[in-house]
Write a protein that binds this DNA or RNA. Structure first.
Lengths: 334, 334
DNA sequence: GTGAAAGCGCTAACAT
DNA sequence: ATGTTAGCGCTTTCAC
């Protein structure tokens, strides 16, 4: 494999000059530059980023730490959409992405900062980790620039991107209230997600503004799982015949809720209205098509990469990006 | 950041000994090893893989070149599933994945082998590239170990994993024939995919075995797109009232076909039977639920990573892995 | 404008 | 069992 040494030899100059020419420095005569360029093309030269990174102490690599590459993530596509967004932005830069594959076994062996330091990544994007994940604590303590997705932590070196989950949930419930619903249940995700806490706030806020009492027993924990949501809703509706609407903190859980309602031989939206959250692909293919709060997952990824790289380039200190959500009315509400 | 030099100093030994101890060589006394381990823990040492890779001329990194991170790929999830499989296998090894983000702009600037050599990846997995992709030619010519997904090319350094597409398609058509269908159309993908060619073979083979004539005008090009398939099928069925079944080379196109049939106010499966290919998530959520040929995309990724790493470790020379498909009967056929 | 030399952190002969 | 030395391919003072 060709090195700058080879080029230097053939071009009859020193490696220093080759390095300078290749990197576009100004203090190289036009003539030698031409020569060097020609030779490097001729020898089919590719720079060795490893050597370069080593000496520059910068790898132009950003790490991607994803906890959600499970079979379930195929259903909501959240992870993949975010990845696409990240990939898109990164493709516009010189950076490359390194995907850290961490199953839980590995996690016990290697700490977060070990992972990052070994590969000398310039920064990291974290997606899908729960609030009780051991990595999270480390992130804050380490000094590696990092952007979190959907976890609102800010410091000198960590920023985040998320959507306005309080407002998002509020939009959903407000819509149901507008349509005349008063007995509105909620299926929330598990407690280890900030978004769950936020969406609950939005739910409560909407009710409060209308002076409608909050029933704690109407708020279920669906753990972000289709089946669990189905069980919970089945149980709830058997006990509470007067509920007319359910707000679910994810579309997947909304789909579970729909199954439960189907089992009870109740009609959507005639007897029960359902609003989901996320706007996953399935939402628009369900029968009836699901009304939901859409969040732009692709954009979240794109903005996360943008934020991180801006932080790395120094054009921005740790910061946050909060995206909007949008109510998408379909057929599961009336 | 701590280096082995620091450790050497504190432990009172040479860097060589530190290196040997850390890498588990046998020719280090148990006592010094203990000492070195203790010191490196104390100093919170992480090895610098960049330096290591540079000197060893091996990066324990495998490149992932994906061409299918488009919005469309969200629908069929093929790319993501393959990625999950790759990630899973890689997680069981020491390797890490580097995701090459190549939009078409970049592709013009940087050749395949440049991409790989710059980052010094040990091998590459390619997914989603078409047979007319400029990269493909390069792959074969370059000497970088590589595994292709769904492109049957073998050489000293390139292997591939795919499914048995001829047999898969044949299973679909055989099933339709068994159920008494005789006028069976096919919606194929575009010509730049090997799988299309294979699936067409399977279709023809099944017909031939039953002595049923092949009508070229019944084989449509749906370009693997939902909308295009819909257009094509609409057109076909308007012209040919006697067709009773359609085999589609992808579920997405099958869904397009279903839309067309719905528009014609025809019933599935009463008047027209549909068989898809892939078994994507949507298939089981459609109404009626789609009969299809399932291929294990996750496993394809897993096997691809496995094959590549075995090639790299020398335990296997370039080779292929061909997976089975499975007919999944649902409600779109009778 | 160009070159010599040092050094990034690590491994690997080759000594001892 | 341990140390000395060279070198991976590159960038970067510093001198000329």
């Amino acid at each position: 494999m060709t090195t700058i040494k080879d080029i230097a030899k053939v071009a009859g100059v020193s490696v220093t000059t080759v390095s300078r020419a290749l990197n576009g420095y100004s203090d190289v005569s036009e003539k030698t530059r031409q020569k060097i360029m020609a030779v490097s093309k001729e020898l089919n030269y590719s720079p060795n980023t490893l050597a370069r990174s080593l000496v520059m102490n910068k790898s132009t690599t950003i790490g991607l730490l994803v906890s959600g590459m499970t079979a379930d993530s195929v259903k909501d596509n959240f992870t993949f959409e975010v990845l696409r967004g990240i990939d898109q932005f990164v493709a516009e830069t010189n950076y490359d992405l390194i995907l850290f594959s961490t199953n839980s076994t590995k996690q016990r062996e290697k700490t977060y900062s070990q992972l990052c330091r070994e590969r000398r990544v310039d920064g990291v994007i974290l997606q899908g980790i729960k609030t009780d994940d051991p990595y999270l604590q480390e992130v804050v303590e380490s000094d590696i620039p990092c952007v979190l997705i959907d976890i609102p932590i800010e410091s000198q070196t960590v920023g985040y991107v998320t959507t306005d989950n309080v407002l998002g949930a509020k939009k959903a419930v407000d819509y149901l209230l507008e349509r005349g619903h008063r007995k509105i249940a909620m299926v929330n995700g598990h407690d280890f997600a900030f978004v769950s806490q936020e969406r609950l706030k939005g739910y409560m806020q909407a009710l409060q503004e209308k002076g409608i009492p909050y029933h704690q027993e109407w708020v279920l924990n669906g753990a972000f799982e289709e089946e669990e949501a189905e069980r919970q809703v089945l149980h709830l509706l058997q006990k509470n015949k007067d509920i007319t609407a359910i707000f679910c903190a994810s579309d997947l859980m909304a789909i579970g809720a729909m199954q439960a309602i189907k089992k009870l031989n109740m009609d959507i939206p005639e007897q029960i209205s359902i609003v989901g959250y996320d706007d996953i692909l399935l939402a628009s293919y369900m029968n009836p098509r699901l009304t939901t709060i859409a969040q732009d997952k692709y954009k979240m990824g794109y903005e996360a990469a943008k934020l991180l790289i801006e932080m790395l380039e120094g054009s921005r200190q740790s910061c946050k990006t909060v995206l909007e959500t949008k109510l998408v009315v379909r057929e599961s509400t009336n």
